[in-house]
Amino acid sequence: MPYDDRQATLGRRGFTGLLSAAVVAGLTGCGSGGDINPSIATTRNVQHPLGNTDIPVSPKRVVSLDASGGLQVSLEVGAPLVASETLDGAVSVPGYLPRPAAGFQSLGFNQPNLEKVVKLAPDLIIGNLQRIKDLYPQLSAIAPTVAYENAGKGKPWQDSVRLIADLLGQSGKQDAALGSFRERALQVKIEHQAFLAKHSVALLRFTNNELRILRGPIFGSTILDEIGVRRSPSTAGAGGTDTYYPLNREHVGLLADADVILYFLGGGAFNAGPDQIFKSYTNNAIWTQLPAVKAGRVARLDPTAWWDGYSVSAANNCLQQFTMTLRKLPQK
């Protein structure tokens, strides 16, 4: 349901009553501190786009206002995630991730509810800058709150997920997982190097209103780069954005320079009408005459990993899909 404007304008004063119970509970849980070694730090200071924040070294109750990195990295490294924003669409929590622990609460997609966050009694709140910035004063009154930039803004996704894991006190686990991913990507690159040397690839996304060639720092595109995929020249077309180039129906013929076409429908907030857009683009003579289509080198991918993915688990799932796809395509 839409977020209540009354909640969005709550200030620190409006939280006094809501926070009192959580504060009392926290103080009661801490006790006198007689069994705590004062020489061992329980908090550390981190700098982030909205300031400097003291956060727990080992958080116990994490809330994520981020359906991408916050949700996926928390589950991947086994952080104590009590609630999170989840993906919009048919899949709220990607199946390639470990399942949330019992009692986990979904916060929906882009529906920040401050009263609900208070009741969750978190000791750490994380989220991308887009979700956090307007509510930062209120969220900081509830628990230590840290914002971060999404991947794709000049920062590789590998750096972004490591940063999130570090906030959760799990950078070691994430480093190990990233190392394993790089080894696996190299294996995929070696296995398919002969095919990839001869064939260019276009990665497409059908949204609710258009066809886009994906490129640049967007997650799925970077996975192809990791395994040395040669992109078709049309991928670098002038116009669009750094992450995609739009194609109208009359210009689908530009994809004639791709030996292989990989595509997915929707992803993100585009889940209502991509099927119809897909049909409108592909049920015409221009599409059917594309060399990749005529050669049978067209394959559909899962948008949950290729678009909504934001973790090592998602990257490994993309590698698996890519490998299975190429093994089924004509090799000549």
Rank of each mutant, 00 (worst) to 15 (best):
A25D: 09
N113W: 15
S311E: 02
G154P: 02
G31N: 07
G237C: 09
R12H: 04
Q105W: 01
L71F: 04
A238P: 06
T222V: 03
G309D: 00
W157H: 01
V188S: 12
L97R: 03
S32R: 10
R297G: 02
L196G: 10
V188P: 12
L186R: 15
V82E: 01
P144G: 13
S39C: 06
D159L: 13
A315I: 00
Q187N: 13
D88C: 10
T53E: 12
L168K: 14
K328L: 13
G34N: 08
D134G: 06
F104E: 12
G309W: 02
V252C: 12
A269V: 13
P2N: 11
A185M: 08
G29P: 13
I40W: 00
L329G: 10
F278P: 00
N209A: 15
Y136S: 04
T207C: 07
A22K: 09
A79E: 02
T282L: 10
Y281T: 09
Y263G: 07
R230L: 12
D257Y: 10
G296D: 08
F206W: 02
A238I: 11
S180D: 15
Q105N: 08
L178M: 10
G17M: 10
V293H: 06
F206M: 07
V73T: 05
G220A: 05
L10R: 13
A177V: 07
P303T: 08
G108P: 07
L107Y: 10
I40T: 07
I126E: 01
L97D: 07
M324T: 14
F206V: 08
I132P: 01
S280Y: 09
N284P: 06
Q138T: 11
V201L: 13
W157A: 04
E183A: 15
G296C: 07
S74I: 07
P98E: 05
